[in-house]
């Protein structure tokens, strides 16, 4: 396994990093979609995520990394062990059998056993599923993902197999809007959507190049240099997860969120829900026990910009629309 560029060494791109941290703090926020200019470290940030995540407890030998705490009571207590949280790549060109799982051919042929060979969805359970260039993913795989991401369960009916297994994962996608737009149904599955732009000041650009160069010349040394910073981020995630259950959402914040969503005319309740969850996770990351306007303001754009009523011709940009609504709401 090649060394990956450390998360904390990524220069700038604060919104993207924040969205990833929020998703790592509370999986229920939904996934993260990172769209933007080429070469801005989109996939670097996602790949760096794996190193940040604290390990989780899982049932030994379970292909779906089941949580031992959620096993039905009464039965024998399953053995559990600590495993890294999976961050699974779904590469372009993947075939359906590898994604959903299929009959284990080798065992079927050599032993005559009808066994299920779990796919990427199984491996991603309780973790992250990452699709780079998500807008180029074949449509039939997109359909499949939309379904599984909504139900949290993967149902396989093929080759005489009938298998259902949990598949709850945080969907993370990245891409460049020039390669095409994302289907609205899939867009909706992402809790947060982040836009990344090329930094325009010289100092930042110099820093980007220097760090990239340092990493390329001595990956191990560079990763070691940043291990301390990464550890700090990990601690922050762990602390936020601990704090999260006790973070309160006052009525005033609920009201602000509802007003904001009404103002923007977002469809359904999903926007409000995501906004609240993300704001709570953000408060937890900040070490706050109370969600306030500050969190709502910071997270409004990523939580809502992809949920505005789609006007494909509107080039004022949804970010600007959200920002305007936020400014109006909190100025009043």
């Amino acid at each position: 396994m090649a060394l990956v560029f450390p998360f904390s060494a990524i220069v700038g791109q604060d919104e993207m990093k924040l969205a990833i941290l929020i998703a790592a703090t509370d999986a229920r926020v939904g996934g993260v979609l990172v769209f933007g200019d080429r070469g801005t470290g989109k996939s670097t940030a996602v790949r760096a995520l794996a190193a940040l995540l604290p390990p989780m407890k899982a049932v030994v030998g379970c292909p779906y990394q089941r949580d031992p705490a959620l096993e039905p009571a009464g039965g024998p207590k399953p053995k559990s062990h600590w495993v890294p949280v999976p961050v699974v790549d779904l590469p372009l060109g993947a075939t359906e059998d590898r994604v959903v799982g299929a009959l284990d051919l080798e065992r079927a042929l050599s032993q005559g056993v009808k066994a299920f060979e779990p796919g990427l969805l199984a491996r991603a359970n309780r973790g992250f599923l990452y699709i780079d260039e998500v807008n180029l993913l074949e449509d039939h795989l997109v359909d499949l993902l939309i379904d599984v991401a909504a139900s949290g369960e993967n149902v396989v009916e093929r080759e005489g197999l009938s298998v259902r297994h949990p598949a709850r994962f945080v969907l993370v996608g990245s891409g460049n809007p020039e390669e095409g737009e994302l289907r609205p149904q899939l867009l909706d599955r992402f809790g947060l959507s982040v836009e990344v732009r090329t930094p325009q000041d010289v100092a930042t650009r110099i820093e980007v190049v220097k760090r990239r160069d340092a990493f390329e010349r001595d990956p191990a040394g560079f990763v070691a240099d940043w291990a301390g910073e990464d550890a700090r981020v990990r601690k922050r995630i762990v602390a936020a997860r601990k704090l999260l259950p006790s973070v309160k959402v006052p009525d005033s914040a609920l009201e602000s969120a509802a007003k904001l969503c009404m103002k923007l005319g977002t469809d359904g309740l999903r926007g409000e829900l995501t906004l609240m969850r993300a704001a709570r996770a953000l408060a937890a990351l900040d070490g706050d026990r109370l969600v306030g306007d500050a969190q709502l303001r910071r997270i409004a754009a990523p939580a809502l910009r992809h949920r505005l009523r789609r006007n494909p011709l509107d080039d004022t940009g949804s970010t600007a629309r959200v920002d305007k609504a936020v400014a109006e709401l909190f100025a009043a």
């Binding site: 090649a2 996939s43 790949r47 790549d89 779904l90 590469p91 372009l92 060109g93 993947a94 075939t95 059998d97 590898r98 994604v99 299929a102 051919l105 060979e117 796919g119 990427l120 780079d132 260039e133």
Partner: peptide, 14 residues
Amino acid sequence: MAVDRGEVLAERDG
């Protein structure tokens, strides 16, 4: 993707 990662990943045909 292969250029960026320095490796190629494939999940195909079993």
